[in-house]
Nucleic acid binder design. Structure first.
Lengths: 205, 205
DNA sequence: ATATATTTTAACCAAATAGTTAACAAAGTA
DNA sequence: TACTTTGTTAACTATTTGGTTAAAATATAT
């Protein structure tokens, strides 16, 4: 019988704790002490593994951004037909976000605090959404006459809005509608099918 | 010729400065010194007019929340027919938010940081969205057969997502699409008509 | 076993930051 | 004018917080 290592290394504990604290409090609201407590270690250890709060934050933020965008691009830039792409996108996106519901708000908020820093320095632009191909595809379908004459840009914004916003407004939605965690998840599950149906019903001829 | 007072009172200067700083940096990222500088006054004056950072923040946050929700409710609860309500909502909402584009992200983010505090203590629930009547109205239309068999809840979420998200993601959108302020505003202007068209095309029989 | 390198901690430090105080200035009032 | 209230400031204080240090504990190599 081989012994399998299940204990987290200190670095993993730190990263998990940092992720939790940064995502719930944001960069400026997070305290190094809170992260240390959450990880069950001494504060000095944070600085031993990651030099500063900024460095630690950068790791967490990049990981979050990686999770948010690359998958979007791989779908946007694939060769699927339009309707299938729309279905695939909301399915995939909601699946990933259901496991990390606070991620979109976290990323959007940090970007908003200092767009310059985040959008230029931290990212190579390969991580950013590249909707070009998707936009062209819509335009082509419009010209072919297979869908109604819709604005590609607005259709893009619609697809993303419908998929992302329910996560950004999670707390709000749960509170105003009185939903517990399970009910919320169930509704997000439904949306995987609801969104493409809603969109396709609107644009198909 | 009567002299008209155009100078701001100190209190107004503070509120304007606090609004600007809090909305761009958030509660935890904002510095009292920044607010004082922005208002062109001494830091001690902030404490003279508002006792603490928290008190000052509460004023700003409430004002922001007031602007965000009551109008929504007055539309949701009016007696307009459904389609007109949808048109009216996106028109009204986008008009208000175009003047305060960072407001939704600010409010959603602060709520997220501490839902308990914000949603219970600070608000009397009269400010929160009350979508009940709107949901019932949709259900009625479905039963009458005037629109397709859609989920009222998802339709509600769709309308709000489509209207609010483009403001929440403003920085992101501008950066990835390379839009300046004017172009962004123009697109939001278009959305006032695009959103209701998009929705109604989807649900009408 | 001994020595060396790595990991972890408690105690400390310096900078940042919310909040206070006491004195001064301006405006209102008798 | 004298006096009181209101508004404003510079300088200061207390606390929070990111970061450091030096020593102890643990693991690793010889």
């Amino acid at each position: 019988m081989v012994k399998i290592k299940t204990e987290k290394t200190t670095e993993e504990k730190i990263l998990a704790a940092a992720k939790k604290v940064f995502i719930s409090k944001g960069m400026s609201g997070a305290r190094m002490q809170d992260i240390a407590d959450e990880a069950g270690i001494n504060k000095a250890l944070l600085h031993y593994y990651f030099r500063s709060k900024e460095k630690l934050f950068e790791v967490i933020f990049l990981e979050a951004a990686q999770k948010l965008f690359p998958k979007i691009n791989s779908i946007f830039e694939s060769d699927m037909p339009l309707f299938q792409k729309i279905e695939h996108f909301s399915e995939e996106y909601i699946t990933v976000m259901a496991e990390n519901p606070y991620l979109p708000l976290f990323v959007l908020n940090e970007i908003n605090q200092d767009p310059e820093t985040f959008l230029n320095k931290i990212w190579g632009k390969q991580n950013l959404p590249r909707p070009q191909k998707f936009l062209e595809q819509i335009e082509k379908e419009v010209r072919k006459g297979t869908i109604k004459k819709v604005s590609p840009l607005h259709l893009l914004m619609n697809l993303i809005s419908l998929s992302v916003f329910p996560f950004v407004a999670k707390s709000m939605i749960q509170f105003t509608l009185g939903l517990d965690e399970l009910q919320y998840r169930a509704i997000m599950e439904q949306r995987k099918k609801e969104i493409p149906k809603f969109i396709i019903d609107s644009i198909k001829k």
